[in-house]
Amino acid sequence: MSKKQIKLIVNGKEEIIEVNPYESLLKVLREYLGLTGAKRGCDYGGCGVCTVVVNGKAVYSCMYPAIKAEGKEITTVEGLYKNGKLHPVQKAFIDANTVQCGYSIPGAIMSAYALLLNNPNPSDEDIKEAFSGNLCRCSAGYYWPEAIKLAIKYMKQRES
């Protein structure tokens, strides 16, 4: 098994790493780059705690080959927290009371972030679809739609 050198752009920063041919983006983020914000809950697309954003789209990093991500823009939950300031989506997730054990939260935040990136005014149905791939055992995501609505408000405030 020969390692391959690849270049990833993670949270706006270029990273050069050596990976095995079929290694998941999740493994690379967590184990090579120390970005443990993306979690592992099942490793096969069942829970969504590993969700990160690749080229503006939410994906399961546990089943996304790292080599496939080469040259693409990857955003993780760590990338939203800049200069000591919470991203509006992060603040909204706090204010909407979403946090309990917190294990599903980074993934859900990335799904929310991707949703608002592509669709700044989502309908209730859009919100349901956006979270269709994220489980949460503490609250089943009860407060997530509220968080989306708050995030939209905070983003507008930030613009004005």
């Binding site: 914000g37 979690k39 919470l86 992060q90 917190g102």
Partner: peptide, 19 residues
């Protein structure tokens, strides 16, 4: 009052056993 663990959990900084 806001949970004291909310911020580390939304930023991904909270460390779990798995990490």
């Amino acid at each position: 009052v806001e949970r004291i663990d909310a911020k580390p959990k939304v930023t991904g900084e909270a460390i779990y056993g798995y990490d």
